[in-house]
Computed example of a mutant assay.
Amino acid sequence: MTDRQLIVLTVNGTEHEVLAEPRRTLLDVLRHELFLTGTHSGCEHGVCGACTVLVDGEPVRACLMFAVQAENSEIRTVESLGSGGEPSDLQQAFGEHHALQCGFCTPGFLMLAEGFLAQRPDADRAEIREAVSANLCRCTGYQTIVDAIASTAARRRGAVTEEETTP
C-alpha cells in the first residue's frame, strides 16, 4: 500500500489541496490531478523541456520535481499566460514570428522565456539563444523562437524597432 499525503499547491494563483504519493512528479499532479494539460510530458528525463513550468519564478522541469517539493511555492503553468482569453505578448510574438510548428514544445519554451525575461529583461540575442538551448524543438530550428523572445523583450522595454518585430 502506498502512503499518500495531503499537500497544498499554489498553481496560477489558486491554492489546491491534493492527496498525492510522495513519488508523484509535479508534472503528473498538474496534468492528472489539476487537469492543467498545457504542461506536456516529453522525455520524462528532464532533457527536452516540454514540461517546463515556473516555480517561484524559476524555470523548472516538472518531470524531475516531486509534487511534495513544490509545496509552499508559487507555480505557474502555460495556462497562466494571457488574460480573458487573449494571448500574452509572448504568445502573440510566437505567432507573429512563426516560432511554433507542431506546437508540442511551445508551452515549455513559453514558460522558459517568461522566467528568463523576468530575470533578464535586457537580454541580447546571444543570451536568449543560450537560454533557449536548454529546451528541444524538432521543427523550427530555434531562430524564430529567438526572434519572438527578442521581440517581446524589446516591446516590454519599450524599445521596439522594426528589425526586432518584423518576422
Rank of each mutant, 00 (worst) to 15 (best):
I128Q: 02
G141L: 10
R31Q: 13
H16L: 10
G103A: 05
G49N: 01
N72A: 12
T10R: 14
A67K: 09
L136G: 01
P59I: 11
G85V: 00
Q119C: 07
G141E: 05
H98I: 00
R129T: 12
C51L: 11
D3Y: 04
I75R: 05
L117N: 08
I145A: 09
H32P: 01
L26G: 14
G57M: 11
R24C: 02
F116E: 07
G115A: 12
G13N: 12
T52V: 07
R31T: 12
F94Q: 06
D3F: 10
V29I: 14
V78Y: 04
T39Q: 13
V132P: 04
V78M: 02
G115R: 07
T25S: 15
L136T: 00
R76K: 11
Q5E: 14
V47R: 01
Q119D: 13
E71M: 07
E127V: 04
C63V: 04
A50I: 00
A50K: 00
V146D: 13
C105P: 07
C43F: 06
A99M: 06
H97Y: 07
N12V: 01
E74T: 14
R138D: 02
D147E: 14
Q119T: 11
A113M: 09
T10E: 09
E86G: 02
R61Q: 10
V47I: 13
S151W: 00
T37P: 02
A134S: 14
T166S: 14
F35H: 14
T77D: 02
S83L: 10
R31S: 13
C139Q: 03
F116Y: 15
R61E: 04
T161M: 04
A153Y: 05
G103V: 07
V60N: 09
T152R: 13
P22M: 09
T165I: 14
E86D: 08
R4P: 06
R4C: 10
L9W: 06
R155A: 15
L34Y: 07
T14M: 09
H40E: 13
C51K: 13
A148Q: 06
A148P: 08
G49L: 01
E44T: 05
G49R: 00
T144G: 15
H45C: 09
A153P: 04
L117Y: 12
V11Q: 09
E58C: 06
Q69H: 13
R120Q: 15
E15S: 13
N135S: 15
L81C: 06
A113H: 08
T161A: 07
T25H: 12
A20W: 05
C102Q: 06
R157Y: 01
V68D: 06
D56M: 09
V8R: 15
I149N: 10
T25G: 08
T144A: 15
E21N: 14
P121S: 08
D28F: 13
V78E: 05
C137P: 00
H16Q: 10
V132H: 04
Q143H: 09
A113K: 05
L110G: 04
H45Q: 15
R155W: 04
A126Y: 02
V53S: 07
D89R: 14
T152V: 11
Y142D: 11
D122T: 15
R120P: 02
G158A: 10
E162P: 06
T10S: 08
E114Q: 15
